[in-house]
Computed example of a mutant assay.
Amino acid sequence: MRGANFFHAADRALRFLGLLERRCAACREPFEPPSAPDWPVPEVEDVLAQLFCPDCRKRLRPRTTGFCPYCGEPSLLEDAPCMPCDHCLRTLPPWQEFLFFGVYDDLLRDLVLRAKFGGSLAVLDALGRVFAAVCANHYAVTSRPDVIVPMPLDRARLCSRGFNQCREMVRRASAALGVPVRVDLLVKTISLTPQSLLNREQRSLMKQPFEASDKVKGLHVLLVDDICTTGATMERAAERLLEAGARRVDAAVLARASRHARSVAGPALP
């Protein structure tokens, strides 16, 4: 009885001090999350419910319909059937499967920019948890990749930013899938104009900035980036991996930009 009273008093004290308080990863307001699911592969919505308050969660909806199944290009209507976009009807991308969480807009855009340019490790960890759930659910019903390869940064960009946000984001996906992260299989050797400042045509004309190691030969690779705008950069990276002997390449991003959006360029921190 005394033990129960002690733990009850300790719980009240910790809550009074705010040490057990759960705060939303987006707005930092306190909230009461539901009980954590106990199955090994939680649904994306369950992960969102653990990390974000109800108001923010309404602004972070996974896109389940209304996109191109080959490259993820969102349709103008969210509830439209999944149909190939004009670009993929002409030329299929080099990867076999494409998976993503949501459209690069509203709160998801703010969080990505906060993690990428604001250096918020807490937000980056939350996005990593969401991304891990996307990957775990997808590969629960299909063959898992052999390795995860985050999109590399050139040396100048890495030095100025201080970290590769993709490499940090995939840590939890690696643990969820039991798949190692390999940063030695793909490197970026050329510093180019930031991709957010280029349109699809300009990206298609850019030099091949990537080099792949022959160690990728025979491997099923999951190529990961945080944002996909036109897909041209990921296509170049996937092509290099396949040229080096990769057996298969899948592409996965957290956020997929829409050509119907007014703008996806110009980082502006919230």
Rank of each mutant, 00 (worst) to 15 (best):
R2M: 12
G3A: 14
R12K: 08
A13Q: 01
A13W: 12
L17M: 12
L20N: 13
R22S: 07
R23N: 08
C24V: 12
A26Y: 04
E29F: 01
F31C: 05
P33E: 11
P33I: 07
P33Q: 05
P37F: 00
D38P: 00
E43C: 03
V47G: 06
T65I: 00
T65N: 09
C68A: 05
P69T: 09
P69N: 04
C71L: 12
S75V: 00
S75K: 08
E78C: 00
D79P: 04
A80F: 12
P81H: 09
C82T: 13
H87V: 14
T91Y: 12
L92A: 15
P94I: 02
F98D: 02
F100W: 03
F101Y: 15
D105A: 02
D110G: 06
V112Y: 06
V112D: 08
V112Q: 01
L113C: 05
L113H: 15
K116F: 06
F117R: 04
L121F: 14
R129V: 01
V130E: 06
C135N: 03
A136K: 11
N137H: 03
Y139K: 07
V141S: 13
D146Q: 07
V147F: 08
I148L: 15
P152N: 09
S160N: 06
S160R: 15
V170M: 03
R171C: 02
R171G: 02
R171E: 13
A176Q: 03
G178N: 03
V179D: 10
V179I: 14
P180W: 09
V183R: 11
L185M: 07
L192C: 05
L192M: 15
Q195D: 11
N199F: 04
Q202A: 15
S204Q: 15
M206C: 03
K207P: 04
K207M: 13
F210T: 07
E211P: 00
D214L: 08
D214V: 11
K217F: 03
G218T: 09
G218L: 10
V224I: 13
V224L: 11
V224D: 03
V224E: 10
D225A: 12
T229H: 05
T230N: 03
A232L: 01
T233E: 09
R236A: 15
A237P: 07
E239T: 15
E239S: 14
L254G: 06
A257P: 01
S263I: 02
V264W: 04
P267F: 09
A268C: 04
L269D: 07
L269I: 14
P270M: 12
